[in-house]
Amino acid sequence: MDMIDYGMRARHYDIEYSFNKDKDFIASLVTPNVRTILDIPSGTGRNLWLAETGREIVFADLEPAMIEILSKKLIQRKKIPRVRAVVADMRDLDLGMKFDLIIISHDAFLMFSKDDEVKAVLDCMQQHLSSSGRLMIDVSLLESTSLSLQNTPMCYDPELPDGKWKTDIVRALDHESFLFRRTRQKHIADLVHFDFSYQVKTNETDLQEYKSKLVLRRYTYSALDILITSTGLEIKERFCDYDRGSFRHDSTRCIYLVGHEK
Results as ranks from 00 to 15, higher is better:
A85T: 04
E52W: 10
M66H: 09
F59I: 10
P64I: 01
L74Y: 05
A60H: 11
P32Q: 09
V34N: 02
G43F: 03
W49E: 11
R84W: 09
T53H: 12
E56T: 15
R46H: 09
I40E: 03
I80A: 01
R55S: 13
P81F: 02
R46V: 03
T44Q: 08
N47G: 04
F59Y: 14
D39C: 07
G45C: 06
A60Y: 09
L38G: 00
S71G: 12
S42C: 15
P41I: 00
P32F: 06
R77E: 04
G54T: 10
G54I: 08
M66W: 03
V34I: 14
A85K: 01
R84S: 12
T53R: 13
K73W: 02
K79V: 14
I67P: 01
Q76E: 15
R35E: 15
R35D: 10
L50A: 08
E56A: 13
V83P: 06
E52G: 01
T53E: 09
G45H: 01
I69K: 12
A51I: 08
T53Q: 10
N47V: 02
A51R: 05
I80R: 07
T53S: 15
P64H: 02
I40V: 13
A65W: 00
Q76G: 14
P41F: 08
S42K: 05
E63N: 12
N47P: 00
F59M: 09
I67N: 01
V83W: 04
L48H: 01
G54S: 09
A60I: 10
T36E: 14
I69P: 01
D61P: 10
N33S: 15
T36N: 14
L74A: 04
M66T: 04
T44F: 07
W49D: 06
V34S: 08
R82G: 11
I67Y: 00
K73C: 06
A85S: 03
D61S: 04
V58H: 04
N33T: 15
E68T: 14
K72V: 04
S71K: 11
L50V: 07
L70P: 03
G43T: 05
D39H: 12
K78V: 04
R77H: 08
R46L: 06
K79R: 14
V83N: 06
R82W: 12
L70F: 08
T44D: 07
R82A: 15
N33P: 00
R84D: 03
I80P: 11
L38D: 00
A85Y: 02
N47T: 11
R77I: 04
I75K: 15
Q76D: 12
L62P: 03
V58W: 10
Q76I: 03
P81T: 05
I57K: 05
E52S: 14
P41H: 04
G54H: 10
A85W: 02
R46W: 02
L70W: 05
